[in-house]
Write a protein that binds this DNA or RNA. Structure first.
Length: 421
RNA sequence: GGAGAGAUGGCAGAGUGGUCGAUCGCGAUGGUCUUGAAAACCAUUGACUGUAACAGGUCCGGGGGUUCGAAUCCCUCUCUCUCCGCCA
């Protein structure tokens, strides 16, 4: 949520930004500010009555001590009748606060000024690319055939055991998963991230704090205890700092986590979901940072470079996209997507998304720090996939296929223990 | 799952109906002293809301109740600890 004071003080900039994000309900800004004004006046009325009631209450012990029983009784009556007056006001206030929250949670974050304008993925801007797209022979196989040919990932078996989108990794397929996870974690740890192994289920408060609730409820699996299976480790990891005030010297906080991720992906269909392209359960290594506001964009660049370097070392052709306003997620102020080219499918696959949420997520999380002057401010939060496995595997299998098998990039060989599948 | 005990400021830990937003200690910050540091001593030190700044209001795990007044009494939920049961 955008801090309300920010909306108040920089209203033009906020509205222009929301427009860029293709947000249709700009009128909500006006409603929010109006109802917040209402909140303040109601709060003041209530506080005033409470204050008077408190004064009567406080005088009672003294009056009793002095033996002024009838005056004490009168004070009790005064206080009680004032208290009765507060009932309506405090109900009203609760109602107002509910409305504020309801409106507030519908307003997305404001994009950074460098975010390109646009509404659809076609409007995203390629900022750079790297690697070379391999020239595969005409009869090159898409990964879902390669996985069958070498018997390394079994989609049908997963369907039998659970359902579509829950593949079974076997033999070298399983080893390749572990190798990638280990490699990604090692690189993140080398870059100064603290490894976290979080719970794979979270409660509603956590899901709310990072913004999965209320709008993305349908995307998560929920169990009979009301817990949600995490769609990304961003949720539990970022929630470590929920309701925390940390000291400035602790920043930046850098955390990385491997986890399996669970997404219902209701409504997906067709070639987009074939093979490894879209799964209900998948593996991902995530990087998360909490930083001082003035450093957050330098941090975003640094995170994108980190992810990019992984793709370079894996020898995959990639491109970095700056997402346009309309294609960015609700909470993001600036997002870079990294895509790799899957040579047999002849398409780009998103393998990472790195975002700066500025103070939007921190405001909901209440993740704050105390600066040098002792003032409490919101942190900026960022996260990125480094990396999500399935599409990396898809591209590796397709791009590296040869007559004699699938070549493992050299950086992974120490982890896999084999050079070919 | 059953029985009992508990949850208070960064930590530790008092407080069982009336100036308690909360004693003391540790920690942290500033200062004195010192070449510097340690020690010692002095001072400051919870959050949210609100105001131009004061004032005011709210918060003692969450929610509700009793009362003029609740950290303190009652109900409820969550979590932690001890014992029993079950178990990778």
């Amino acid at each position: 949520m955008i801090p309300i004071n920010k909306i108040r003080n920089e209203r033009d900039r906020v509205e222009a930004g929301l427009h860029k994000k293709n947000f249709k309900e700009i009128h909500l800004i006006n409603e929010l500010l109006k109802i917040d004004d209402n909140r303040k006046t109601t709060q003041r009325q209530l506080d005033d009555i409470l204050s008077r009631s408190n004064n009567f209450s406080k005088s009672i012990p003294q009056l009793i001590k002095e033996g002024k029983t009838s005056e004490a009784e009168a004070a009790k009556k005064e206080s009680a009748s004032l208290k009765a007056e507060t009932q309506n006001l405090s109900d009203e206030l609760k109602d107002i606060e509910r409305k504020i929250l309801d409106i507030h949670t519908q307003i997305p974050n404001v994009p950074h000024e460098n975010v390109p304008a646009g509404k659809t993925p076609e409007d995203n801007v390629e900022v750079r690319n790297g690697g070379t797209i391999p020239n595969l022979p005409e009869k090159a196989f898409p990964h879902w055939e390669l996985t069958k040919k070498y018997d390394i990932i079994d989609f049908d078996l997963g369907s039998k055991i659970t359902g579509a989108g829950f593949p079974v990794y076997k033999g070298k397929g399983a080893k390749l998963q572990r190798a990638l996870i280990q490699y990604f974690l090692d690189k993140a740890i080398d870059a100064g991230y603290l490894e976290i192994m979080p719970p794979l289920m979270v409660n509603g408060e956590s899901a709310y704090a990072t913004g999965q609730l209320p709008d993305k409820e349908g995307q998560m699996y929920q169990n009979q205890d009301g817990f949600y299976m995490i769609p990304t480790s961003e949720v539990p990891v970022t929630n470590i700092y929920r309701d925390q005030v940390i000291s400035e010297s602790e920043l930046p906080i850098k955390m990385t986590a491997y986890s399996q991720c669970f997404r219902r992906e209701a409504g997906s269909y067709g070639k987009d979901v074939r093979g490894l392209n879209r799964l209900h359960q998948f593996d991902k290594v995530e990087i998360v940072q909490l930083v001082k506001p003035e450093n957050s964009y330098a941090t975003l660049d640094q995170m994108v470079k980190h992810i990019e370097n992984l793709l370079i070392e894996l020898e995959l052709p990639y491109r970095v996209l700056s997402l346009c306003g309309g294609d960015m997620s609700f909470a993001s102020a600036h997002t870079f997507d990294l895509e790799v080219y899957s040579a047999a499918q002849k398409r780009w696959l998103e393998v990472s998304s790195a975002s700066n949420f500025e103070d939007f997520q921190a405001n909901r999380l209440k993740a704050r720090y105390k600066n040098a002057e002792g003032k409490i401010e919101l942190c900026h939060t960022l996260n990125g996939s480094a990396l999500a496995l399935p599409r990396i595997v898809a591209a590796l299998l397709e791009n590296n296929q040869t007559e004699s098998g699938i070549r493992i990039p050299s950086v992974l060989i120490p982890y896999t223990g084999f050079e070919m599948i």
